[in-house]
């Protein structure tokens, strides 16, 4: 019976988190809609701070992982394509894979690990330290102060860092193909010919959605932090896990929609 109880408790916990996520999403959406009528509602300084951390501070690791992704993809695919004597098509494969799928996906997973956990830890520490209670007793909405600037920052930062992941991946692929004696001009021509505008725009749109999800899950995990010794750690962990699950779900849904529309 213990196992059923445990499953039930976990299910209730997940349902509670999803419900709170939806509530924060709704409240954040309303706050965004109110900003044009009263721009002071938007906390520019908090947004800039979160943006800097999610973008500029993340660029080295994003570029590094993107580069290695390109190298690995190029090596693995070249090995298979060489059998047919068409290793130059690695460029096309890299271009499509990075722009359409892997660029935003990898950037989002890294964002979940870096910023999603950081958002949860920051907000969690504020909750433990009663700062969120202080906001509430002042009559201020925590979502406006804590979630909105972070979600906006992640949504703006993600397309930018995704472009860096994609470019770094292409550079990694170029170096591998250079080692395989594929001329650079041939490689870059393959990259450009395979990169259609729709794929690039779809990838960047995905990046915006993934950024919003990572930040939303991170902020929700922070708001749900318990005042226990391991509360902030648990919140940070659930932000990363929840963020990655949300990204995978969203990516799957987008893939099904694209397939349905035949794009």
């Amino acid at each position: 019976m213990k196992i059923f109880r445990s499953i039930g408790e976990h299910a209730a916990e997940i349902a509670g988190a999803v419900r709170e996520c939806m509530a924060i999403l709704g409240e954040t959406t309303v706050e965004f809609l109110l900003v044009p009528f009263n721009p002071r509602r938007f906390r520019v300084r908090d947004f800039m701070l979160a943006f800097e951390r999610a973008s500029f501070d993340a660029l080295p690791v994003m570029s590094g992982v993107g580069f290695l992704l390109g190298v690995i993809l190029a090596f693995q695919s070249a090995a298979a394509l060489r059998t047919f004597g068409v290793e130059s098509f690695v460029a096309n494969l890299l271009s499509i894979a990075l722009f359409r799928e892997l660029g935003p996906l990898v950037a989002a997973i890294l964002l979940a690990g870096r910023s999603g956990s950081a958002f949860a830890a920051e907000i969690g520490a504020m909750k433990v330290d009663e700062e969120i209670d202080a906001l509430v007793t002042m009559g201020l909405r925590p979502v406006r102060f804590l979630a909105m600037p972070r979600i906006a920052a992640a949504m703006v930062a993600m397309p930018a860092v995704t472009i860096f992941v994609e470019l770094a991946g292409l550079v990694g692929g170029a170096i591998v193909l250079k080692m395989m004696r594929v001329p650079g001009a041939v490689y870059w021509a393959g990259v450009i010919s395979a990169a259609d505008v729709f794929s690039i725009v779809l990838g960047l749109a995905k990046a915006v959605v993934f950024g919003a999800l990572v930040a939303l899950v991170g902020c929700t995990a922070g708001m749900r932090t318990r005042s226990t010794a391991d509360g902030v750690g648990v919140a940070a962990t659930s932000a990363v896990v929840g963020g990655i699950v949300a990204i995978a779900l969203a990516d799957g849904i987008i893939a099904v929609i694209c397939n349905f529309w035949g794009v």
């Binding site: 701070l49 330290d129 209670d133 202080a134 007793t137 002042m138 009559g139």
Partner: peptide, 21 residues
């Protein structure tokens, strides 16, 4: 009443709860 009541009270929490940023 919440907005009105929040203007009429002030709270100091045990830790101070100042905003660290």
């Amino acid at each position: 009443n919440r907005a009105e009541l929040c203007r009429r009270i002030g709270v100091m929490f045990q830790s101070g709860a100042l905003f660290g940023s």
